[in-house]
């Protein structure tokens, strides 16, 4: 579904990502793990078209998307839930969802998708007229995911979805993500929570200083002594 080859991105003179090669197949849950500043958010923003790469190719469903605008990429169904949620904080829950379905294709299916989303997150339905910024962190993260779902994603990309949440809330969010994947959604998950991310992922990539240093099945990466030593403290 998504095939990235030889992708390099620089911030000014600094190389943020170097020669990345990876792929995500339909229905998979793939995770990128790595420490702060490893380039994970830069990667997602490049896939979303907010950052343009210096070199390389990104093919989505056999179409080259390097050079496309964020608007076009969103229209193709590559949808990002950004780090820190980035909700429209002074707008209501419902308005946030309407903006998720801003483009006309998503807008046409909005009322149907809204039911799906409210079914999944009944709490959002109860609070649909509440101002988004006044909700708890967990509810805000749910809204961020719901906003992405009404955008009709084919590939859902999540950037640190558990950031700043209580452990209980984080667990709930990860359950939702697994649930979505179980329903057939293709997911690219970026996380610092190495253990959780690797245990739920089909495959994982380790990003270190902008380079993929390891890759493999989620379970086998969990067993990898180098990863256990540097990320899990075991």
């Amino acid at each position: 579904m998504l095939r990235v080859s030889d992708l390099s991105v620089s911030h000014g003179h600094l190389m943020a990502l170097r020669n990345l090669d990876f792929h995500v197949s339909e229905g998979e849950l793939v995770t990128f793990i790595g420490s702060n500043g490893a380039g994970k958010s830069t990667l997602l923003n490049t896939l979303s078209g907010l950052v343009s790469p210096q070199a390389g190719s990104i093919r989505f469903e056999d179409r080259e998307i390097v050079g496309m605008t964020p608007e076009q990429i969103c229209g193709l169904g590559i949808i990002q839930v950004p780090e820190g949620r980035k909700l429209f904080a002074r707008m209501t829950v419902l308005e946030n969802l309407e903006m998720g379905a801003y483009l006309s294709a998503a807008r046409r299916q909005f009322s149907r998708q809204l039911e799906v989303v409210f079914d999944k997150f009944p709490r959002l339905k109860d609070r649909k007229n509440q101002i988004a910024g006044t909700m708890s962190g967990g509810e805000q993260q749910m809204l961020a995911i719901a906003r992405a779902m009404v955008a009709l994603p084919k590939l859902l990309m999540l950037d640190e979805p558990s950031l700043g949440l209580s452990p209980l809330m984080a667990e709930e969010i990860y359950e939702v993500i697994q649930d979505l994947n179980g329903d057939g959604m293709t997911i690219l998950l970026v996380s610092q929570e190495v253990h959780v991310a690797l245990s739920m992922a089909d495959r994982g990539y380790v990003l270190e200083n902008g380079v993929i240093s390891r890759e493999g099945e989620g379970k086998s990466l969990l067993e990898d002594p180098a990863i256990r030593a540097s990320y899990l403290g075991i």
Binding site: L50, P70, P82, K86, M99, Y102, L103, A106, R147
Partner: peptide, 8 residues
């Protein structure tokens, strides 16, 4: 930034 991500 989020607005751009959703096609605005």
């Amino acid at each position: 930034e989020a607005a751009r991500l959703y096609g605005i």
